[in-house]
Amino acid sequence: MTRVSMQVDGVTYTDEVEPRTLLVHHLREALGKVGTVVGCDTSNCGACTVHLDGQAVKSCTVLAVQADGAEVTTIEGIAAPDGTLHPVQKAFHEMHGLQCGYCTPGMIMASIDLLKENPDPSDTEVREGIEGNLCRCTGYQNIVRAVQQAAGELSGSAATPETTGAQA
């Protein structure tokens, strides 16, 4: 067992883990962060996407020990402390960018990452930006719309929503 310490959604957790523990299993099973889900074995589906030190990664393809000392943000940590939704969350709701919702946490986390890098993506750029996230329900069109709507809202506001959440 190895001792790991990480800040998840603004709270520091220290635990003993087996080195083979995947970050996503640590989040779900040790920390109760079940908002982040597992959809595949091969890093294809992106359902488990979280931010590791501010960058989107697939938490099923990161060992918990690798996140030692890191800041992790999950879908549960992006809304403001008062519950105000992150603009990307809000846009997914408004544009009907989800149906069953299983891919949604990963999709939202990947989209936030994309918008940090490209604040005004075209339709094609959004599609390529979320190519690592599979959705079986929506056909993606409303997800693309949602990301573009969120882009508009984010570029219009000075706040940096990623860090106004529980991480602050």
Partner: peptide
């Protein structure tokens, strides 16, 4: 190569 998240790691 792969996708955005994979390229981060």
């Amino acid at each position: 190569v792969a996708d955005r998240q994979t390229r981060r790691r």
